[in-house]
């Protein structure tokens, strides 16, 4: 039963971190670059919706870390990392599929994401060393 709880928290962490990454990308493309921050402040040309989404993204990201820690109470670290690699595919597929992102599918990008996921699963397919990182930010 605790295993099911661990899986639930891990999938919650995957969903939250994916939403956080997409939200941060959406909003950062609508905010000025660092060299234009002073101009934007003095002219008042700041998109407050985008600013709010950045903050919400950071909050969702922090919440995903919390879910991750709760998942680790019931799941071995290696299993949890393999599950986390689902978020790479999720973010790539959603950024390509959702209309707001304009990030087209290509063969080489898809292959790159697939290789990365295969690599992470291979690294964690046996008892992994305790030093494996939480893949942040």
């Amino acid at each position: 039963m605790s295993r099911a709880k661990g899986l639930t928290f891990a999938m919650g962490s995957v969903a939250l971190v994916s939403a956080a990454q997409l939200g941060m990308r959406w909003s950062m493309t609508r905010l000025p670059e660092p060299s234009q921050w002073l101009d934007a402040l003095s002219s008042g040309g700041i998109d407050y919706v985008a600013l709010g989404v950045v903050l919400a993204g950071i909050f969702a990201y922090a919440l995903s870390m919390l879910c991750w820690l709760l998942a680790l109470r019931d799941l071995p670290l290696s299993r949890a990392y393999s599950l986390l690699s689902i978020s790479y595919a999720l973010v790539y597929l959603l950024a390509a599929g959702l209309p707001w992102f304009h990030e087209p599918f290509t063969l080489s990008k898809s292959l790159g994401v697939a290789l990365v996921i295969l690599g992470v699963i291979t690294i964690n397919s046996r008892s992994a060393p305790a030093t494996s990182p939480r893949n942040t930010p």
């Binding site: 973010v91 950024a95 992470v120």
Partner: peptide, 16 residues
Amino acid sequence: QRMEVGVAYPMLSLNF
């Protein structure tokens, strides 16, 4: 701000 999230985020696996 500069890179597609679908490309940049999986590249974070460099941490492993």
